[in-house]
Simulated assay, not measured.
Amino acid sequence: MILQDKVALVTGGTSGIGRATAIAYAQQQAKVVVVGRRMNEGEETVRSIKEAGGEAIFVQSDVTKEADVEAMVDKAVSVFGRLDIAFNNAGTVGENPSLIEQTEAEYDRTINVNVKGIWLSMKYEIAQMLKQGSGAIVNTASANGVVAFPTFPLYTASKSAVIGLTKAAALQYAKAGIRINVVAPAAIETDMFEAATGGQDEVRAYITGLHPIGRIGTPLEVANAVLFLSSDLASFVTGETLMVDGGLVAQ
């Protein structure tokens, strides 16, 4: 098992990509700290892990609040003794496609969750990893952080920022034994994707058609990429953006 006895923390672990990755970590015999705002869904993720024989806890946390982020890392260390891996996955798409109609509140919410949340998470994760002399961090960006779509201006800006933030952090801590990378999915079968399409079949068909591979991705396919970046299989990989996009950006 490539993550045996490692301690892995997953933000946004209550559903979708986060839940799939938390379960995948556990299947590789990591001890998992599932983090999210929704207690019932978070406990369900933990239950799924434990029923399969894994070890996990849930920590209720809002990644836009510094005290919550500090507490989630402290909890991971107090329960499991260390923090080897962090998957910073909590994020939001935003609601209004029109830039001129977007509000200051919507800007603040999108940037706070998608950028501030990852900055705060890395701030406390890295501090712990520096004490240990090693660690691996994976941040969730998006294909929208590499190429732009006209209907997601704030989301695109926030995910571009995640990529830039990750590169700078990776360079800053490369010699400290901490690897930091980005996974950048295109459209994935999640509740967030369903919300973005508004449940409209024609919108879903259009987005599906943008992917040269001919379909939408699955949370497990993203989780597998995160597993690679989190493990020693990627020991010489840092500061990179791994596209999990069915060829969308290549075109």
Rank of each mutant, 00 (worst) to 15 (best):
M1W: 09
M1Q: 11
M1L: 07
M1I: 08
Q4S: 05
V7K: 14
V7Y: 11
A8F: 00
A8N: 04
A8P: 00
L9R: 06
T11E: 14
S15Q: 05
I17Y: 03
G18N: 14
R19Y: 00
I23W: 05
I23L: 13
Q28S: 09
Q28I: 05
K31S: 13
V34L: 09
V35M: 03
G36I: 07
M39V: 14
E43Q: 15
E43V: 06
E43T: 11
E44K: 13
T45C: 00
V46W: 00
R47A: 07
S48P: 00
K50V: 10
E51H: 02
G53L: 04
G54T: 07
V59P: 08
V59S: 10
S61C: 15
T64Y: 06
K65P: 07
K65A: 06
E66R: 13
A67G: 14
A71L: 01
D74T: 11
V77E: 07
V79Q: 12
G81K: 08
R82G: 01
A86G: 10
F87P: 00
N88P: 01
N89K: 02
N89E: 01
N89H: 01
G91W: 10
G94S: 14
S98K: 11
I100Q: 11
E101L: 13
Q102T: 13
E104G: 12
A105Q: 15
E106C: 00
D108T: 05
V113Q: 07
N114F: 06
N114Q: 11
V115S: 06
K116D: 04
K116L: 09
L120C: 07
L120R: 10
M122I: 09
K123Y: 06
E125K: 11
Q128K: 15
G133P: 03
S134Q: 14
S134A: 11
A136N: 13
V138Y: 10
T140L: 12
T140I: 07
S142R: 13
G145K: 14
P150Q: 10
F152L: 14
P153D: 12
L154V: 13
S158F: 02
S158Q: 04
S160D: 10
S160G: 15
S160H: 15
V162P: 04
I163S: 06
I163R: 09
L165Q: 11
K167H: 03
L171R: 13
Q172N: 04
Y173H: 15
Y173A: 01
A174P: 09
K175D: 14
K175G: 03
A176D: 15
A176G: 01
G177H: 15
R179T: 00
I180V: 01
V182N: 12
A184S: 09
A186F: 11
A187H: 10
E189S: 08
T190G: 04
F193V: 04
E194W: 04
A196M: 03
T197N: 01
T197A: 03
Q200T: 08
V203K: 09
R204Q: 12
A205C: 00
Y206S: 10
I207C: 03
T208I: 01
H211D: 09
I213D: 12
I216W: 03
G217Y: 15
L220D: 14
E221W: 08
E221S: 06
V222P: 12
V222Q: 11
A223H: 04
A223Q: 07
A225W: 05
F228L: 14
S231K: 08
S231H: 08
S235Q: 08
F236Y: 15
F236S: 09
V237T: 10
T241H: 05
T241M: 06
D245V: 03
G247Q: 10
A250D: 13
Q251H: 15
